[in-house]
Each structure stands twice: as structure tokens, then as C-alpha cells.
Write a protein that binds this DNA or RNA. Structure first.
Lengths: 188, 188
DNA sequence: TCCCGGATGTGATCTACCTCACATATTTGT
DNA sequence: ACAAATATGTGAGGTAGATCACATCCGGGA
């Protein structure tokens, strides 16, 4: 219990007592999902936020032509859900599905609210996570505005070299906002 | 005091007692800045977060060719600073400057941390604000990935019609990620 | 009031990236 | 181990949007 990976993850930001972690952990549930299974599907109400223990997932949007656009990848120690649907209690517009077989922990919306209200520390933890996420998204926007496809590709490669061994190139392309053909021509 | 616009703004999310608001408000300072003056400049340490009482500003990044890219506009009731520099205590890469003469409130980093620690309500308020901001950025990314310039333009026009009367078109273009010439050809 | 710098419109190229088409390799489920 | 599905490479041609060039217009400061 002392060294559960979720505890380590939270303690990167906020120290916890054994009792606190035990209490927090009591609000999470473990689930397993196989490759290609969905955690969130477009149109559903979203009542869970997931934390990746093991595996790799994507959150993506399908436009009216059926083309996939990837908002986020999630690997070990990442949080994922459709945040708009989860926070605003509306139907999902985004899907979350498994690229590999996954082990996940999830917390329900109600329990997340409850923990946030009861424990200032958890409010603080999630607030900090959201801030970091906000900054990351801002940098991604900036990169989309100013960098050509090749530079965006190189930055991603540098930041997440693992990604290129774990997910198909066409998904990398969807994340970067280029066609798979163009991405292919950016290396080779 | 009862109806200070900052109080109304906070109370859209969390109710406050008179004492609470007075205490919070005591941590803010009013400043005035004229058109073209900077609130944050590239290279500085950023110790303040601003809240716009009156006026219009932009936060922007200049690439190595000197081309401006706009991350955010800020008008009445918006928060603005270089969030990466502010939260991570590093030098600004982004500039914030006034498009119109402005009246602003600001809070220092230390006071923001202090208020967040002391008052769970304020932690909650800022956490909620950051979540909403995160969702907005995610939607902007999605729009950059899937929508052609014309659609991005129309969405912005629909969401913030006021913007088009208050800021020059070339800044709208920088925000959308198109050249001012292309933007011009999207209407007319 | 006048003048100057910024804001805007518009034509003429140019190019990064897209789409379509097809060949080939690599997984993966059974 | 096999068949089907998925992933990847690469050519050809098309297009949204960039860049450059120039004309006009407008607002705000001295």
C-alpha cells in the first residue's frame, strides 16, 4: 500500500499520510479492458475519470466525414476521460478507447466531488494537475499555430519517444493534424 | 462592496459571505494601463495574475521570424497572465499587452497561493476556472485539427462577436492561425 | 487640423500539405 | 499457421492558404 503507484503519483505533488491514501484509494475501482474496447463512447453520459495503471489509450473525436482526430494519448500514470462531458455533465462528444490491453483505476464523478470537498489536499492535487494540463494544451496550440508539420513531429518524437513504438503512425498523424501520407514522408 | 464585479464573478461559481469577499478583495490591487503598454514581457519573471475590470488585452508569442501568434484575448471579467511562467516560476515566453486602455486588478503569486491554502473555497474557484479553461483549449485544438480557416473564423465570430469591433483583424488572424490576407478573403 | 503609421483589401504567384491510387508489409484473431 | 485486417510507403495531381506587392483608408497623436 505504501508504494502503490497511484500514491507515488499523488505524492509527486502532495504528501499524504497512510490513512489519507487509504481513504482516497477506497474511492477507486480497478478495471481491465482489452485493445479496441471503449471506456467512453460518443453520446454517453460520462461518470468516470480513469487513471492508467498499465496500457495505452487515446481520446479522439470523429468529424462528420468520419475522420478521426486525436485529442490525447494516455499511458501509464496519465488521467483520461472526456473532460467536457465529465465536468459539465453532458453527453460525450469524444471517445476514449484502448490501443493496448489496459489496467485502469477509475473514480466516479460523485466520489471525485466528494473527495475534493472533504480533502483540501485532493482539491489542490487535481487543481495542480489541471494547471499543468492547461499549460501543455496552450503549448500545443502555440505549436499548431507556429510550427510546420515537421517541427511538430520532431517535438513530439523528442518528448514522447515511447509513443512511436506503441501506437500506429496514422494515430500520431491524427494527433499532429497531418495526413498519414505526409507524416510518412517526414522521416524516411 | 456587495456588488463589486469581482464578487459577482466569483459568486458565479461559489457563494461568499461579506467577510470572505472583503478578505479576498484585500489581496488584490487596482492598476491602470494604456493601450500598447505591457503587463508581462518576454524574459521577465511573472509574479502577477490579472483580472480585467475594463479594457481589452492579448497574450501573444513572437516566433523567431518576429511573427506574432495570439494565445488568448482578454476582455472584461477574464483572467490573464503568462500561466506557464506564473505557475512554474520561470521566465515569460509570452507577452501580455493592452489593446485598449485598461483597468485591472492583480494578485501576486504569493497571495494567490496563500488564499488558495487558507480558503478551500478559493482553491475550488480557481480549480473550476482552470477546468473550464482546459476544456476551452481542448476545443480550440480540436477546431485547429479539423476545421478549415473559414469555419474557425465563423465559430469565433459567433462566440465573441464583440471581438471584431474591438481588435484589429490581423490579430484575429494571428489567433486563428491564418494570414491577415486570407482572413480578409474569408468575408467580403 | 494635418500627417503618419497602422489597418485593410486585392491581385499574382508559390508551396506545404491533402487526397486518391495502388503496392507491400506486418499484425492479429481464430 | 492462415486468412483477413490493418499498417505503411510512395507516386501523381489538386488545393487551401502563404507570401509578396501594392493601393487605399482610417484613427490618433502632435
Amino acid at each position: 500500500m505504501n508504494s502503490h503507484p497511484l500514491r507515488q503519483h499523488i505524492e509527486e505533488i502532495i504528501p499524504l499520510t497512510d490513512e489519507e491514501f487509504a481513504y482516497i484509494f477506497g474511492h477507486f475501482t480497478t478495471i481491465y479492458r482489452r485493445r479496441h474496447q471503449y471506456l467512453v463512447q460518443e453520446g454517453e453520459l460520462v461518470n468516470k475519470e480513469f487513471w492508467v495503471v498499465k496500457g495505452c489509450l487515446k481520446s479522439c473525436f470523429f468529424d462528420k466525414e468520419g475522420k478521426e482526430h486525436i485529442l490525447q494519448f494516455a499511458m501509464e500514470n496519465w488521467w483520461v476521460t472526456d473532460y467536457e462531458a465529465f465536468n459539465n455533465r453532458v453527453e460525450a462528444t469524444v471517445s476514449v478507447d484502448c490501443i493496448e490491453d489496459c489496467e485502469l483505476l477509475y473514480i466516479s464523478y460523485e466520489d471525485r466531488e466528494k473527495l475534493s470537498s472533504e480533502m483540501h489536499k485532493m482539491e489542490r492535487f487535481w487543481a495542480k494537475k489541471t494547471k499543468l494540463g492547461y499549460i501543455a494544451l496552450q503549448n500545443r496550440i502555440l505549436s499548431l499555430l507556429k510550427d510546420p508539420a515537421k517541427v511538430r513531429f520532431e517535438k513530439l518524437l523528442k518528448q514522447y519517444p515511447l509513443l512511436f513504438q506503441r501506437v500506429p503512425k496514422k494515430m500520431i498523424a491524427s494527433y499532429l493534424g497531418v495526413s498519414r501520407e505526409t507524416l510518412s514522408r517526414l522521416y524516411t
